[in-house]
Nucleic acid binder design. Structure first.
Lengths: 126, 126
DNA sequence: TTAACTGCAAATCTTTTGCACAATC
DNA sequence: GATTGTGCAAAAGATTTGCAGTTAA
């Protein structure tokens, strides 16, 4: 794989943020520094970065994919009120034990997605 | 809510199948018995049935949503080879304990999705 | 009768792709 | 110089929606 200015910018952007941005958000941000950056390129480069394991994709049903620079084991929550994605520190070993106990099938990966209200929204809701 | 012939057909179709069909598959099947059934109606009725809790939606990243008539607690696996969705009997109480231990946030629901090879495909792969 | 439901087609949203040009090695 | 990567626009796939007509209560 060759060096690419755009791919490097996109990687840095994802790594520097903890808000799990969408491709569109990444593109918009980076246009401040790379005005001709195209959304197609962002999608292509994000796919590449996920493939080579530099970032992670976070899929939420009915939402645009988010991207995450945190590679350590954790799960995600989607807040239905503010629509933000936050990381949940769910013990990897215990979750893994539950998943891997399934007979016959060959498990390669898994994702636990939680829906509800984030801490801030839960507070203001009450 | 009023009775609707189409909604009843769609509900029966989902309840009678265990293969987690897509809206398109449901529509195609039902056209044998209801030729003018439209895909838009199928989507609308499926959404209604999910809302009133008669069926469940199964979302797989990058795939069309599947629908499930089994309401008991279970999780799902997506086989990357045959692209089927199968039910996984993961102990609800243990999973729930892990999820609910997260502090501050208000959890309303969650879904554990597993990716890999189903039993049949794992066998033929080897 | 009237409000909900349907069929149809068009619109929407996210993501991918074809192609000509630009950048890297 | 050969290829990979990019920008742009068009295409693709899933789902929603507007509207005029139909059906249940």
């Amino acid at each position: 794989m060759r060096y690419s200015h755009q791919r490097e910018l996109i990687l840095k952007e994802v790594l520097s943020r903890s808000d799990h941005p969408t491709a569109e958000q990444i593109c918009t941000s980076l246009r401040a520094v790379c005005p001709r950056l195209s959304l197609g390129t962002v999608y292509r480069d994000l796919n590449t970065l996920v493939e080579i394991g530099k970032i992670r994709r976070v899929s939420i049903p009915g939402e645009a994919d988010r991207f995450d620079g945190e590679l350590g084991s954790h799960q995600h929550m989607f807040c239905r009120k503010c629509r933000s994605v936050i990381s949940l520190p769910i013990p990897a070993d215990q979750l893994e034990r539950l998943v891997m106990a399934c007979p016959d099938v060959k498990i390669e990966k898994y994702a636990l997605t939680v829906f509800g209200l984030c801490a801030d929204c839960a507070k203001s809701e009450a």
